[in-house]
Simulated scan of single mutants.
Amino acid sequence: MGAWELLLVAAVMLIGLAGVLVPGVPGSWFVWAAVVWWALQDPHGLAWAVVGGATAVLLVTQAVRWQLPPRRLRASGADRRMIVSAGAGALIGFFVLPVVGALPGFLLGGYLSERLRLGGHGRAVAATRTAMRHGGSDVLTELFACLLIMGAWLGALMWGP
């Protein structure tokens, strides 16, 4: 698979990651489709193992999300900037502290956005907590699954055949 094709796969994955942050957009399925597209173009055992793992992760994520409250982030007072900041924080955290850094990155990104908007620590903590209760955990679950899939894909590119 050529460099341009890999860049297109990465672009579709990034669109999927952004789609997770937008209600109604099947972002996780974009990420999964990009992995399948990569595996079809570069068929080897490791690629199909990544597809199998990605499929399992998405199925487990869907089961977990059904147990969480539905997304009502807007009703909690969270604005678009807070959601994007939380997503960017998760992405940065995922790479700074591999895998587990997505959770504190998500929370810190959301908190910092709310701190800038509301001005005080107490109000920002309360707003972040409210947003997490009203669907932030749902977004975080789906985003974390997509980051895991993207990390597996990157690992397969770096250490695969």
Rank of each mutant, 00 (worst) to 15 (best):
G2R: 12
G2M: 09
W4Q: 12
L6M: 13
L6H: 10
V9E: 00
A11Y: 09
A11S: 12
M13K: 10
M13V: 01
L14N: 12
I15S: 08
G16E: 00
G16Q: 05
V20Y: 03
L21R: 11
V22W: 12
G24Q: 10
W29Q: 09
A34G: 06
V35P: 04
V35H: 03
W37K: 02
A39T: 03
L40W: 14
L40S: 12
L40Y: 12
L40K: 07
Q41F: 14
Q41N: 13
P43Q: 14
H44Y: 14
H44Q: 15
L46V: 12
A47E: 03
A54K: 00
T55R: 02
T55Y: 08
L58E: 14
L59C: 08
A63Y: 11
A63Q: 08
W66P: 03
P69Q: 14
P70K: 15
R74V: 15
A75H: 15
A75S: 13
S76T: 08
S76Q: 10
S76E: 08
S76L: 09
G77H: 05
G77A: 04
G77C: 05
D79C: 07
R80P: 11
M82R: 06
I83M: 15
I83S: 06
V84Q: 01
S85C: 10
G87L: 00
A88L: 15
G93M: 01
G93R: 00
L97Q: 05
P98M: 04
P98C: 07
V100C: 14
G101T: 00
L103H: 07
P104D: 09
L107H: 00
L108V: 15
G110I: 01
L112E: 03
L112A: 07
S113I: 00
R115G: 02
R115L: 11
R115V: 04
R115T: 05
R117K: 08
G119Y: 06
G120A: 14
H121Y: 04
G122F: 11
A124D: 00
A126S: 04
A131Q: 06
R133K: 14
R133N: 13
H134T: 09
H134F: 08
G135C: 05
G136N: 01
G136D: 01
G136Q: 01
S137T: 15
D138W: 03
D138H: 12
L140M: 14
L140G: 07
L143P: 04
F144E: 02
C146E: 00
L147S: 01
L148E: 05
L148M: 13
I149A: 03
I149T: 05
A152T: 05
L154G: 05
G155Y: 07
G155D: 02
L157M: 10
G160N: 04
G160F: 09
P161R: 11
